[in-house]
Amino acid sequence: MSAPAPELMTPGKGRGLLDVFHNRYLLRLIVDKEIQIRYRGTVLGLVWSYLKPGVQFAVFFIALGVFLGLNRGLENFAVYLFSGIVLINFFSEIFGNASRSITDNGGLLKKIYLPRQLFPVANLFVAMVHFVPQIIILAIAAFATGWFTGVDVKQVLAIPVACLIIAVFALGLGLIFATFNVFFRDAENFVDMILMVATWASPVLYSWTMVRDQLWDWVYYVYFLNPITVAVELFHYGLWYPTVNDAELWHMPPHLLTIWTPIALVIAVLTMVAGDALFRRHEGNFAQEL
């Protein structure tokens, strides 16, 4: 007897992010390609992963820490500032590059079929390659200011949870805007505006207490519905807070672990599910539109 015919599938349609796990070899090739293209013709190569955040930190530290006096108002302001910068850079690289990943690879998509989700996910892994060196530098700075003597298990676990929230949320937004960008190139401008606002809409350059004390109560609650805000505060809780000598003075936001973190995880996951659904619905028209 002849073998049953395989189930037919609509061309250009896949199983969404599940296809990424079944095409790990292709994913690795795309990640390698993205890294090589990123540093092609450069002299410093991956050293830029250290240099860019270092210059960014120096500018903000001088402008905010020295000129505006936050260095005196926040204990170990350098660790506080750099921990926020590292995480917001992680978000910016995933979201920004994922949103452009389909249009940037339009020539390849018009020639062959492969799961389109590979390109946004590949940018997540490229961002992780750049994220790790920055984490190493941040960990060294935290150790130098007494992190090891003041840390507990919850604070250690807060670090990977913060990274998970950022990775899932940024990838979900990247899938949404990667889809919009194929049909409406104005989406890139919206992405640039979101990235510009994201740094100031989360406690990267200032303390969360400023929002609580100087704005309306409802703004405070909306502020903490932003997963980036929660992730940055978790990073502060895991890396900066153990270095603080006066824990009573520099306390963390109320209900950070019990309420805001679960809410942030749910919002991040729902964003990724919505992004994957939107992406899958329209990916069959990507090659035609490009």
Rank of each mutant, 00 (worst) to 15 (best):
L257S: 03
G284H: 10
V211Y: 09
G275L: 01
D217K: 13
L17Y: 08
Y237T: 03
A5R: 09
S202A: 15
P11S: 04
V43I: 15
A122P: 01
G16I: 01
E233I: 03
P253G: 04
N245P: 04
V55A: 15
K111C: 05
L164G: 07
W216D: 12
I30P: 01
T271N: 05
A122R: 00
E289N: 10
F286H: 07
V222Y: 13
I140G: 11
G174D: 02
L114H: 05
H251R: 13
I267M: 07
N226L: 10
F91E: 01
W216R: 13
T258Y: 06
V156F: 09
T42N: 15
F184Y: 13
A98M: 00
G275N: 01
I165A: 02
I194N: 04
W216S: 07
P133Y: 02
L8K: 08
I112K: 04
V197A: 13
K52D: 15
F143I: 15
A187Y: 08
Y39N: 15
S83R: 07
F82K: 11
A277P: 00
N23L: 01
A3S: 06
R116C: 04
N97H: 10
V182A: 04
E289T: 10
L164S: 03
F125D: 00
L257K: 02
P262N: 06
L205K: 12
S92P: 11
E34S: 07
S2Q: 08
S92T: 10
Q117I: 03
R72G: 15
P115M: 00
N23W: 02
W216V: 05
R212G: 09
